[in-house]
Amino acid sequence: MPSSVMPTSRQGDGHLSTTAISAVGLRKSYGEKLVLDGIDLHIPAGSVFALLGPNGAGKTTAVKILSTLIAADAGELHVGGHDVAADPQAVRAAIGVTGQFSAVDGLITGEENMLLMADLHHLCKREGRRVAAELLERFDLVDAAKKPVSTYSGGMKRRLDLAMTLVGSPRIIFLDEPTTGLDPRSRHNMWAIIRGLVSDGVTVFLTTQYLDEADELADRIAVLNDGKIVAEGTAEELKRLVPGGHVRLRFTDPTAYQSAADALREVTRDDQALSLSIPSDGSQRELRSILDWLDSVGVEADELTVHTPDLDDVFFALTSGGNVPHQPQKDAR
């Protein structure tokens, strides 16, 4: 029969390690296809870590391995102070997982799903009811609690999914694309909930396609591409990795555009849109010098926007072999 339940007490070298999740040389391939090619991670307890990467980069695979769902081919992996390969049951007792695809029981009600989780966490009946009611309330599912989950919308299922993950009050939580498919309000609610978890000292490992989400939530971000971590750091550190800051001038009058383009050097022209991009770090001094230059040649731009590199730039620069796709319109920051 499958392995039996292990005691959940913390073991190891006696002291509580401050590393929640660590991986050294994590490798995994599916048949011929190498998906993770020696990943190293070090995630301090109580922090939010975001794993970014294009579709098929291996984010879900990394989550599945660290959450004991599938085995790695190689690597030293520790979660919550326990060796993932040697003592998966102890890891399971420490974590909560919300996978990329919904993991709810569609045939029963939302409340029954919550009580099922409470039973599996061996809460007593009263405690189980209390926790279920509290989480249903927190995730705005009270009205739907008595309805079969198969009648829920995608966003409601997603919220129930996370609520179920929180039943055992896990100290380490894996969230694989937690806000995919949520409307903007639900997304911001989800962010608030995640921040709330973090303020309680929970460690969050999240993957996401939304770069602003990583920017908003994560203490540290790693970019996964081609099975390797190609960059890791805070959002600010990552943004510094790529050039891309520029000032954009737009004209409506073609002659003004033409004379500005002739006068300014080092510009990238977009003749169709009558706009010019000038590389710049967006500092006050550089802006003033650009304005002075424009004044001195006597042209007036109709619109001036400052672009600082954002995580999108980082993402494109790091994950598509350096080919930054042409992005004609982008908001000023």
Binding site: P2, L69, R92, V97, D105, G168
Partner: peptide, 15 residues
């Protein structure tokens, strides 16, 4: 169903 995957990541008796 994804629910079975969830059970597999919980400290419940495997069988």
């Amino acid at each position: 169903e994804g629910l079975i995957a969830r059970f597999r990541t919980m400290a419940v008796y495997r069988g």
